[in-house]
Nucleic acid binder design. Structure first.
Length: 99
DNA sequence: GCCATGGCTAGTA
DNA sequence: GCCATGGCTAGTA
């Protein structure tokens, strides 16, 4: 099965998310020229075997939204390892720079 | 094909 | 409401 152009675009976009940053499913959809396909983004990330930084994609509120407990923990861990601050419930916390 | 299932979201009778 | 995926069923080759 060959990936659709849309799916390939999505994978490419996710690959390009810089380390330590995050983006929402909806914004990935926008960048892929499918503004209403936010929900499909999660399906694509879940289905691919490609080694991409899927953990940098979270919902619009900046919270990890994966339901599977193990994957959820994995995502939180990866984001923390990249320097982000997350509450144990998976909410990304904006940490103001101290002067 | 059909249909249920989401790691979603804009917009709100 | 949106839309790709995945499991499952007809119904053909």
């Amino acid at each position: 099965m060959t990936d659709s152009p849309f799916k390939k675009d999505v994978l490419q976009i996710v690959k390009n998310i810089p380390k330590g940053e995050w983006i929402s499913y909806g914004d990935v959809a926008l960048l892929a020229q499918h503004p209403r396909a936010a929900r499909a983004i999660s399906a694509i990330l879940k289905s691919t075997n490609e080694p991409i930084p899927w953990h940098r994609v979270v919902n619009k509120q900046g919270q990890v939204s994966i339901k599977d407990p193990e994957l959820r923990r994995e995502q939180i861990k990866r984001l923390r390892d990249e320097g982000l601050t997350l509450t144990d419930s998976g909410q990304i916390v904006h940490v103001p720079l101290s002067h």
